[in-house]
Amino acid sequence: MSVTDNRKEKESGLYETLKVIVQALLLALVVRTFLFQPFNIPSGSMKDTLLIGDYLFVSKYSYGYSRFSFPFGFAPISGRIFGSEPERGDVAVFKLPTDTSIDYIKRVIGLPGDTIQMIDGVLHINGQAVKRERIDDYIEQSPSGVVRRVPRYRETLPNGVSYDTLDLTTHGELDNTREYKVPEGHYFMMGDNRDNSQDSRVLSRVGYVPFENFMGRAEILFFSMKDGTPAYQFWRWPWDVRWNRIGRTL
C-alpha cells in the first residue's frame, strides 16, 4: 500500500467516525426535543412522589410544542402547536413564569377558570373540599441517623386522580390562602410536599402558569440516587441507588 493510499484510508476512517458522531448527536437532539427529555429532581417540594436524586423522563409530545420545547427557546413558534391540554393531577415540567431560565416540576391542580383555595390545610377546588384521608407517616432518616416522621395523606381530585401529600405542620404558611381564580390559558400548580413548596400559591414567585410554558409530562423514573450522592460515582451504586424506585410511573 502506498503512502497516498494509507492517507486516504485514514481520512476515510476519520470521516466515517465524524459522520457517526454527528448522526448520533442529531438523533439525540431530535429525541430530546420531540420525544423524551431527562430531568433530575433537585428539591423536596414533590416528596414523596419525587425525591431529591430521582431522574425521570418527561414526554415532550404530551402537551404539544412551544418555543420552550426547543433548546434555549430558539424556535419561531407563538403559543403551542399540536397542543393537548394538561389534565388535573398530571405531574408536569414547566418554565417558571417569573424566570423562564428555570425549570419547575409540580402537579396540575387548577385548570383555566377554576377557583383554588387552601383552608386549614385542605385543598378546595371551585368551592368544594378535595377528598383527603390520613393514611400513614412518611419516614425519613437524616445522614446523622435522626429519624423523622411526617404525616401523609391521600388526596383524590374531582377527576379521580389520587396521590399522596405530606403535611409537615398543621400551621403552615400556605395552609390558609386567599381564593385564586385561574385565568384562561393558565394552570395552577402545587407541590405534593405542601408545607415545603413554592408553587402557584406564591404569586410573586410562581403564580399562574401559561400553557405555553409547559415543557412536558413526567412519565417514569429511570434512575434514583440517595440525596447527596452524585450519579457519576458508580462505585457507590450498589449501596446508594434506590433500586425500588427505578421504573416507577408517575
Rank of each mutant, 00 (worst) to 15 (best):
L96S: 13
Q198G: 11
S62T: 15
L157G: 01
K181Y: 12
F234W: 06
D199V: 06
S101D: 14
F34N: 12
L35Y: 08
L50G: 00
S45H: 12
P210F: 00
H171P: 01
R154Y: 00
P238Q: 06
L29P: 00
R7A: 13
G160T: 11
P158F: 10
V93R: 02
D195G: 03
Y187T: 09
S66T: 10
P76I: 09
L96E: 08
G79N: 01
M46E: 04
V147N: 04
F57D: 00
E85D: 15
Y163M: 12
S101K: 14
L111P: 11
I246H: 08
G216I: 02
S69C: 14
L14S: 02
I109Q: 03
P183V: 00
T165F: 02
Y63W: 03
V58E: 09
V161F: 02
V209G: 11
K19Y: 07
R67E: 05
D5L: 00
V241P: 00
G228D: 04
K10S: 08
A92V: 15
I125M: 11
G160M: 10
G83M: 05
V22T: 14
F94W: 10
D164P: 05
D227C: 05
D175F: 09
Y63I: 01
D54I: 12
N6R: 15
Y187L: 05
V241Q: 02
K106A: 04
L203W: 10
E87R: 01
G110T: 05
S204N: 02
Y138T: 02
V147I: 15
V93K: 06
G13D: 13
S12E: 11
V161N: 10
D227R: 15
G44Y: 06
K60Q: 15
V150S: 05
Q128L: 07
D240R: 15
R236T: 13
I116V: 15
V91I: 15
F222L: 02
P210V: 05
M215P: 03
V31Q: 13
F57W: 08
